[in-house]
């Protein structure tokens, strides 16, 4: 079972390459922020999976809660800032 979860965690870790590509390639600032958001949700999943793999889920789930809240607030704040500034 742990091996399967490790496999899932590996696939998600590899998939993180895609948002990184989006952050680097753009082309607009909105694409980059979108990439950051996707990376954030992948990070939440990785944290929880790692928690199960190391059998320390009670600790990792708290990190995941904090990360979920930070990720949401971060994207919304950047979006608000971009809207005020009003340019790409």
């Amino acid at each position: 079972m742990t091996a399967l979860l490790l496999g899932v965690a590996l696939v998600i870790a590899l998939l993180t390459v895609v948002p990184v590509f989006r952050i680097v390639a753009g082309p607009t600032i909105y694409d980059r922020v979108l990439g950051v958001g996707l990376m954030g949700t992948n990070a939440i999943l990785l944290l929880v999976l790692v928690g199960y793999i190391y059998d320390r889920i009670d600790m990792f789930v708290d990190l995941a809660v904090a990360y979920a809240i930070l990720n949401f607030v971060g994207v919304v704040v950047v979006a608000k800032y971009l809207e005020r500034r009003g340019e790409t």
Binding site: Y30, G37, A68
Partner: peptide
Amino acid sequence: KLLLILIFVGLGNPTATHALTRAALRSRH
């Protein structure tokens, strides 16, 4: 706690997406 994260992501992700697309629309992208 996992269920809490689940609810939070379910509400937060669409809201964040909306905030971003609105910013893009209002700056005429």
